[in-house]
Nucleic acid binder design. Structure first.
Length: 764
DNA sequence: CTCCTATAGCTTTTT
DNA sequence: GCTATAGGAG
């Protein structure tokens, strides 16, 4: 228990053991930030602080999970489980469910994801007879989101000169009305969007001092990771909860603040000193991750930003290689160069695929890289883009679950009322909706209201609606009486979803089927493990956990040894031996959206800093002179960021990298090729026929565990589970097809699994 | 009401 | 290049 303090450097140790009073930990990239946070919590626990008195907030589920695992390894799983540790969104969702009634919400409120919110906005815009070309759902959504994150409720919005001015200026003066309707719709439907989870927490704390009192009394110690990424809403929650015990420890790095677009305020960390009197400052400046070259190069560029807390990040690792810079003629060539380099590096250094990461600014860039990697037969995994939970078939299934848990969830209802097709079309829904509006009731209550017979629908249509609502009511009873998995299977069958997938024999249809099954498998695992732990395992409970999950959270065992493809944003907090940053061109990185303002540009620079500092050994930067955008060829020049890195840390590679004239003096190099190319963003028709590479529709993640059928699994065998990893079979029981195996997993502990669902792979 | 085809519009970044 | 929507035929 004591040895956890060993191996910490003096600065880290100070940050760990000084647990009383406010603390600001400025943690440079790779300086062991997570380690300090974990140890600090372990230290608190060793001083007999009860785990449920510690609140620890992160931004991603992944970060929370990792930290919890590390702590569990020190203090044991039982203790760790009592910690209040999770993302802002999940922790405050938990609190909001407990206190929902006080805000007039059902505690079974469901969550709208971004798409649901946009759909709702779209229908409001339509109802208000506004032009959806002007009031684009995405833009309106971000205005509303920004307001919510600044705690500006609809009423305040109308009085907010600046916001109203901006809306008038962008010719969208009625956004505040849309906002107001949006909020009342959500309230009426018993749903919250992502921002509501934080906003409503603030409202709860403000309107119910007793509730606030309860929680601020409970949380003796509060820890916040990535503090530079908090928005006003999050900032205020932390401040309120911390005002009693004042043991607020925030950890962050202003140089890595990259989320201003979703309301993050870098000022929160810059102003910590003003908010928390008598705070202590701890600076972690030694980078344990990267070579000196990488750290120095990253420093040389981040110092170009004006607004930052002074610190000197340094490395004592070997000097290392210079940053390689590749130049390609086209995006396709860029992909091939990178793929080739990965292949060669891996051979030369005897590295594994998981040591490599390919980072880009935009998700769309992944495609071209995928093509190249596939051509070279290199295995990869992609994070981001359309995640598992955003796939249509998965969302459809989840919509059924949502509707059953909360029948007023209108986006869920609209999504599936005619899916699979049951003859309830647009006209019918318009009638039903307008009636619902006229009596100011949710659609669902209209459906089950006898008055529906008088709204001008014919008998056939009424019967279809009736059949649908009967079905949903039946599902509702199941959800109350059955565990999640059984209810989910009933719903999949009863709704006709399963039949729909089964009868579709096309490649895509099979993919949908596999995804739907994968979802059911997930529910099966959830149901079993909750049962074991003696916790609730209804479908509602499953839905609660899943609504805030993202792609990042589903780490598959089979994906372990693969090249990682992700956006730079998604890579924050991660590290890889070899990092490739691709598409480093003007207009791309920095993004053309950001180059107008200093603020935007500085954030892009920080983002670039994040990209560089992901690497342990080698950074490779590449850019292409031309690339396909919207199916059209466009030209770009290299990013200014390449020029901003001190030249002595760069190694310009490849024959085509520079015009002959620029070869002599290194200082002239970049200037000459920066000015030489055609303006960024200019597009023109290709003069030649660009060969189209048809993308074979290979699923990004494959779910088949080929070869070993689970039926011959015996006691004592080593097996591999896609989520739990490696484990040993302790016991096999039950008759086919319901054979159960008890497996002890190295990382996940003992689990009981139904062999027909758990895709176990036999290892030896 | 459903299915099919043409076309507009599009790209930050994520909980 | 891709996807979401609108419009038209059955």
């Amino acid at each position: 228990m004591q040895d956890y303090l060993e191996g910490l450097n003096p600065a880290q140790r100070e940050a760990v053991i000084n647990t009383e009073g406010p603390a600001l930990v400025i943690a440079g990239a790779g300086s062991g930030k997570t380690r300090v946070l974990t140890m600090r919590i372990a230290h608190l626990l060793s001083k007999n602080v009860a785990p449920f008195r510690i609140l620890s907030l992160t931004f991603t589920n992944k970060a929370a999970r990792e930290m919890k695992n590390r702590i569990a390894a020190i203090v044991g799983e039982r203790t760790a489980n009592y910690l209040w540790m999770g993302t802002f969104h999940s922790i405050f969702m938990r609190i909001l469910r407990i206190e929902a009634k006080k805000l007039g919400y059902p505690s079974s409120f469901t969550i709208y994801d971004t798409q649901d919110s946009k759909n709702l906005i779209k229908s409001i815009v339509k109802k208000m007879k506004l032009d959806s070309k002007i009031y684009k759902p995405g833009e309106v959504y971000s205005r509303i989101s920004s307001a919510k994150n600044s705690l500006v409720v609809p009423k305040a919005y109308a009085n907010d000169k600046e916001r109203m001015e901006l809306d008038r200026f962008s010719r969208k003066p009625r956004i505040h009305e849309i906002y107001s309707r949006y909020v009342s719709e959500c309230y009426k439907n018993g749903v919250m969007d992502f921002d509501d989870l934080l906003l409503n927490t603030n409202i709860l704390f403000r309107s119910h001092p007793d509730v606030l009192q309860k929680y601020k009394k409970q949380f003796d110690y509060i820890l916040v990771d990535e503090y530079q990424d908090t928005n006003l809403s999050q900032y205020l929650i932390v401040k309120k909860l911390g005002e009693q015990h004042k043991n607020v420890c925030v950890v962050g790095d202003d140089a890595q603040s990259i989320y201003s677009f979703r309301g993050a305020k870098i000022e929160n960390i810059l102003n910590f000193r003003n908010d928390y009197n008598g705070y202590r400052l701890f600076k972690l400046e030694q980078n344990y991750r990267s070579t000196q070259n990488i750290v120095n190069a990253a420093n040389s560029i981040i110092h170009k930003n004006s607004n930052q807390i002074k610190k000197t990040v340094f490395s004592e690792k070997p000097e290392g290689n210079r940053i390689k810079v590749f130049n390609a003629y086209s995006d396709m060539e860029e992909g091939l160069i990178v793929a080739k380099d990965i292949f060669e590096t891996r051979m030369r250094e005897q590295a594994s695929f998981s040591d490599f990461a390919l980072l880009y600014r935009l998700n769309v860039q992944s495609r071209i890289m995928e093509d190249a990697l596939r051509k070279k037969n290199l295995p990869y995994k992609i994070y981001g883009g359309t995640s598992f939970y955003q796939r249509k078939e998965v969302k459809d299934m989840l919509a059924y679950f949502r509707l059953v848990v909360n029948p007023n969830d209108e986006e869920a209802l609209k999504r599936i009322i005619n899916y699979p097709v049951r003859g309830i079309g647009k006209t019918t829904m318009e009638k039903v909706e307008s009636f619902a509006n006229s009596v100011n009731q949710p659609i669902w209550s209209v459906l089950i209201n006898p008055a529906i017979t008088n709204i001008g629908l014919n008998a056939g249509t009424l019967k279809k609606l009736r059949t649908f609502s009967d079905m949903i009511q039946q599902f509702m009873q199941m959800v109350n009486s059955l565990p999640a998995y059984d209810a989910a299977v009933e719903i999949a069958n009863g709704s006709g979803m399963r039949r729909l997938f089964q009868t579709d024999t096309s490649i895509e249809g099979q993919g949908r089927m596999e995804n739907a099954e994968e979802l059911l498998n997930g529910i099966q695992e959830f149901t079993e493990s909750k049962k074991e732990e003696g916790e609730d395992n209804s479908l509602a409970d499953f839905l609660e956990g899943v609504s805030l999950l993202t792609d990042q959270d589903t780490d598959k065992e089979e994906d372990k040894n693969k090249i990682t493809l992700m956006t730079v944003h998604a890579a924050k907090g991660l590290e890889f031996k070899y990092v490739y940053i691709v598409g480093v061109e003007e207009g791309m990185f920095p993004s053309s959206m950001a180059i107008e303002s200093t603020k935007g540009l500085e954030e892009e620079r920080r983002l670039f800093y994040v990209a560089l500092t992901r690497a342990e050994e080698q950074v490779t930067i590449s850019f292409a002179k031309s690339r396909l955008k919207y199916g059209e060829l466009s030209f770009a020049k290299p990013s200014r960021f390449v020029g901003e890195i001190d030249q002595k840390y760069l190694e310009l590679t490849g024959d085509n990298i520079l015009p002959a004239s620029g070869r002599k003096k290194s200082s002239q190099r970049l200037n000459s090729f920066q000015s030489r190319n055609i303006q960024a963003g200019e597009t023109q028709r290709p003069a030649f026929n660009y060969k189209k590479t048809k993308r074979t529709d290979e699923p990004k993640v494959s779910f088949n565990y080929s070869g070993s059928s689970s039926s011959n699994i015996k006691e004592g065998m080593e097996v591999l589970h896609e989520r739990f990893g490696k484990g040993k079979v302790i016991n096999v029981s039950g008759e086919l097809p319901n054979t159960k195996a008890t497996v002890f997993f190295e990382n996940a502990g003992q689990k009981q699994l139904l062999l027909k669902f758990a895709k176990l792979k036999i290892l030896n």
